[in-house]
Nucleic acid binder design. Structure first.
Lengths: 190, 190
DNA sequence: ACGTAAGTGGTTCGACCGTACCAGAACGAG
DNA sequence: CTCGTTCTGGTACGGTCGAACCACTTACGT
């Protein structure tokens, strides 16, 4: 019934253009015409594959989430079966730092969406989706499951993300700070 | 030479309209016409007092920074002369949490500017200005001046800010988490 | 073979954008 | 008083926006 075009690939190609524009100039730069030019396709195609501009922005965010989750799971899985809880936890936390261009761009795009859709319930839920389960996972990985430390550890990582993006902090220093916290938390209490 | 109009008050009145719009819908909602309507003044007045839209956004950010610094200093000063280092540190950290509508709006506006002006050197420096000295202040207030803990404490507070804004975390819980960290850091090490 | 649905490209429309422009009103200086 | 500066309000212009529209091609089901 369908032509031989790969719809998912097409949508992803367009979404990637949205990401680039949103990361460099905010959501307001992601107009239909500009996205089309960035992707190198006629503007009409965005209408066909996404509908309105609102749908386009939502769809691009959806794909970004999916990509991010897959990338993160891949990196954690790459640790191998004999990884310690500390190794896994470290890997999970580092996922929030802009350690490569992919993660850097993803975090910038999230920030671009942040304010715009704070009022929009649908999007707020979509952004909020992950963390609650994430905090529990972190607490599980910590010795003695200290919930307070787990929550603050996640918050600290998120804060480091912002500082690295702003150039206030080097990525190396952020990783070092996380490692120092892990040192402390995985050291048997007195 | 000048009329009896208070230019600063006028600029502040307009800037406040920019903040409200930027906080609720992002920078793209802060168009000249919309800001004028929100402030209840003719659009022409924004041109007169700020110039171009770019100047308007920059000016509004400038005023926001000034207000924020004054508010923060006031709250710290209100602690009185017999405040302990821990009291002062707690007050400084809490300044970053959206504990009232004023701080909540200010943080939202910062986020709205974040991506848009990441590429713009002038603005990036203006946002980046405060923290370096702030980290040193925090380290000074900590017993034994532990730089790593000071940096992570600030990062954690920034992270909590984002989570509270997103509704992932209650303000009370955020304050509690900070207090737990302060408990730990102000407890003599074994 | 042919019809039908999927997909494409280009254009058009009304709305809003930022900013320049133009009188004229209000007030202090001479 | 009156001249000139400061300040105000309204409007006009060129441009871009999102979205609707229409003519067209393509390839599959039958």
């Amino acid at each position: 019934m369908s032509r031989q075009v790969d719809h998912d690939a097409r949508r992803r190609h367009i979404a990637a253009a949205v990401w680039r524009l949103a990361a460099s100039g905010g959501l307001e730069d992601a107009t239909i015409r500009r996205v089309a030019a960035e992707a190198g396709v006629p503007a009409r195609q965005l209408q066909y594959y996404f509908g309105t501009r609102e749908d386009l922005l939502l769809g691009a965010l959806e794909l970004l989430n999916r990509d991010g989750a897959a990338e993160a799971q891949g990196r954690v899985a790459a640790l191998g079966p004999e990884a310690t809880p500390r190794d896994i936890l470290r890997s999970v936390l580092l996922e929030f730092l802009p350690l490569d261009e992919s993660r850097r761009q993803r975090h910038l795009v999230y920030i671009a969406y942040f304010v715009r859709f704070m009022a929009d319930e649908a999007i707020r839920d979509r952004i909020r989706d992950t963390p609650p389960e994430l905090e529990n996972l972190i607490a599980l990985l910590l010795p003695e499951g200290r919930k307070d430390e787990a929550d603050f550890l996640l918050a600290g990582t998120n804060g480091l993300q912002g500082q690295v993006l702003l150039g206030q902090l080097s990525a190396e220093r952020a990783v070092e700070l996380i490692d120092r916290q892990l040192d402390r938390l995985f050291t048997p209490t007195q």
